[in-house]
Amino acid sequence: MVTKALAVGLAALGGGIGIGILGSKAAEATGRNPGAATPILVTSIIFAALIEGLFILAAFAVNYN
């Protein structure tokens, strides 16, 4: 069905944009303050995980029903 593929596609689009913005901001922050690279890494991993989690929830929610 189109709606299923469309839903997963949009979820992936959202995830992609989210990770993109997160990555760019993390790179900027590390550039501005290289000393704090590890805490920035930890924070960006946490938020990347939340974004990925949202996408995977959407992908599985669509396929399961």
Binding site: A49, L50, E52, G53, L54, I56, L57, A59, F60
Partner: peptide
């Protein structure tokens, strides 16, 4: 817990 289990499962299974 739902998100945690789906995230790990989804990534590895995918």
């Amino acid at each position: 817990p739902i998100a945690l289990s789906f995230r790990l499962f989804g990534n590895i299974y995918g």
